[in-house]
């Protein structure tokens, strides 16, 4: 009885905290200046990409480096259709396009495993980049495209909504039978197949679902750029950073990737603007130390501290 009451109280506090956090983020453009919004747009962008990456790669153990391909696709959807269709439709179109492309790519490649899959996704980014380069050279006789810009507030709200959608979808997918199936695939793929799980379909569908958010983020951020070209759109950093951010934050649950994206971006910004000459050195040291001493990320460290404070009790896993 006491336990039930405690849980209801915890639930109430949590919902209240979430509501406050949501309200603050939602009302932020009304109360703060441009740069803070700009920084938050970047943080939310990386949070979307990192959570999107974790949706598939976290439970399945398949390390995808295709993030930049879907993100870049979103860039190009924005560049091609900006000005001709509404911003919201643009974002939806980018999400749907990324889903379709990921479905096709996944169906072709998700029979590959381990490092072969990782190398393929890495090569996919270069492949798409070069195809777009060639198409632009031959068809449009140029390399880049101008994109109609959207106000900072508009971009902020769009990426905030996509962030919420990404997190909610990630939670729902984790709790769905697809999420559980993906988890079992990650633990032992053969055993999962023998227990009746359609392994390929589960992987392909989740891979494609995660691509939706990457494409949407790309379409939104492209409207901040005025001008894009294939090297900007399909930048391999966009593939590597979410992986680092997820590892930095911890991949045990969805809080870790959000925390990782936020801190990673924030620490990078602080080091870059205050210690420009030492930036790379300090950032490298921070990364090495975090990998050595926080193998489960910041979240793992926080859970360890929580356990110690509670005298060995169970921390939120």
């Amino acid at each position: 009885m006491m336990k039930a009451k405690q849980m209801t109280r915890d639930k109430g506090i949590t919902l209240a905290l979430l509501a406050v956090a949501f309200l603050i983020l939602a009302l932020l453009p009304q109360i703060t200046s441009g740069y803070i919004l700009t920084l938050l747009i970047d943080i939310l962008k990386f949070a979307v990409l990192t959570v999107g990456w974790v949706i598939f790669s976290g439970p399945s153990g398949y390390m995808s480096l295709a993030t930049a391909a879907f993100y870049g696709l979103g860039f190009y959807i924005a560049a091609v259709f900006s000005g001709s269709i509404p911003f919201s439709l643009l974002i939806l179109l980018a999400g749907v396009s990324s889903f379709v492309v990921a479905l096709g790519v996944g169906a072709l490649t998700l029979r590959l495993r381990g490092v072969y899959f990782t190398i393929f996704t890495f090569a996919l980014v270069l492949l798409v980049q070069n195809v777009v380069l060639e198409v632009e050279r031959v068809v449009t006789q140029t390399r880049g495209r101008f994109v109609e810009t959207v106000s900072t507030e508009g971009v902020y709200y769009a990426i905030f909504i996509v962030f919420v959608l990404t997190v909610v979808s990630a939670v729902l997918i984790r709790r769905s039978r697809y999420g559980l199936a993906l988890q079992s695939i990650g633990e032992h793929e053969e055993a999962a197949a023998h227990s009746g799980i359609n392994v390929v379909w589960t992987k392909v569908l989740t891979f494609a679902s995660s691509a939706v958010f990457m494409g949407m983020a790309g379409a939104i951020i492209a409207t901040r750029r005025t001008y894009i070209d294939p090297y900007i759109a399909f930048n391999l950093n966009t593939s590597f950073l979410p992986v680092l951010m997820a590892m930095f934050g911890g991949m045990g649950n969805l809080v870790g990737p959000v925390l990782g994206a936020a801190l990673f971006t924030y620490i990078g910004e602080i080091l870059l603007t205050r210690f420009p000459d030492l930036y790379m050195l300090l950032f490298g040291v921070v990364l090495i130390l975090s990998m050595l001493f926080m193998p489960n990320g910041i979240l793992g460290l926080a859970q360890g501290i929580w356990r110690k404070m509670k005298g060995g009790g169970r921390a939120p896993a």
Binding site: T14, L17, L18, I24, L25, V255, V258, L259, P316
Partner: peptide
């Protein structure tokens, strides 16, 4: 619920 509580705190921390 613990996770959600942490998530909300993270969101506030973000700001």
């Amino acid at each position: 619920w613990g996770n959600l509580a942490i998530l909300s705190m993270v969101l506030v921390a973000l700001v």
